[in-house]
Design a protein around this nucleic acid. Structure first.
Lengths: 139, 139
DNA sequence: TGTAATCCCTACTAAATTGATAGGATTAAT
DNA sequence: ATTAATCCTATCAATTTAGTAGGGATTACA
């Protein structure tokens, strides 16, 4: 299951990408438009800022903005920040590899074989999708 | 993340597929070989039996066996039984569709668009993989 | 017919994760 | 100063996960 955190994060990013004005967008505004609990969204946007995807401006008239053009923001990055590793098991993770405690030989492990394929196909989607793709209403 | 339940279930099924003798395999035997807590595995195999993937024989010399040839057992079925819906959000699920509470228009929802692609690519893997594929040690 | 081996079933539990909420500190515009 | 925003830490209830416990029902076989 996709966490609410990721779902909300994706919606917020899309909202920001669609707005693309000069002034930063405020959490309250996004929360209201996208029906997201404001305090929760606050912590999500903070995560996205710390990861470098969003920038922020503090104080009055502050808010959040994209650090890159939507077409430059890949889903691989966004998903890793919000949801964590893309692989379903650590033993097939590119960025967070870990050997299984059980599992004597990875090459003989059926779970490894299957999840490797799932990872590759999912990765293929995320690598070829940018925030711009998500924010376009057509198709 | 893949649950331990699914991981153990897949390993157990693979183990059974690789054994394919005349006599059913016992939980204890599988648990020991695959390093799975026996009582936990018991409940997993029970689930697989109830779903029709496994058959069982009770009493002394009882155990579990496959109801079909490994090449007939698709990962779509196994994964749905063990892990639940394949889609990451209910609004793109084939078998468990549910509208989102928020989300006025699905066609405009960026999460929906993205997760639809992920579902399709994952489904593609599961549809084209059988237990026989998992149990072959080569490639 | 008794006994051991095995699946079957229900209930319980500890730990981790998720989805928030609360309260205030900090910063910046007016 | 005042106001409006982000930033930060802590807490919490509900749910899910990963088991464990204990015994019931069934079957093989001596």
């Amino acid at each position: 299951m996709l966490s609410k955190k990721t779902k909300y994060g994706l919606k917020a990013l899309t909202f920001i990408a669609r707005s693309e004005g000069d002034t930063p967008l405020q959490v309250g505004e996004i929360a209201k438009s996208e029906q997201i609990p404001q305090k929760f969204l606050e912590s999500i946007l903070l995560t996205l800022r710390k990861s470098g995807i969003l920038g922020s401006k503090k104080g009055k008239h502050g808010g959040y903005y994209l650090r890159q053009d939507p077409s430059e923001i890949k889903m691989t990055e966004v998903m890793r920040v919000l949801e964590g590793p893309i692989a379903m098991v650590p033993c097939v993770s590119l960025n967070y590899y870990e050997k299984c405690d059980d599992c004597v030989d990875e090459n003989l492990c059926s779970v490894n074989k299957l999840m490797l394929q799932v990872r590759d196909s999912t990765l293929n989607v995320f690598r070829n999708t940018t925030l711009a793709d998500l924010s376009h209403t057509d198709l």
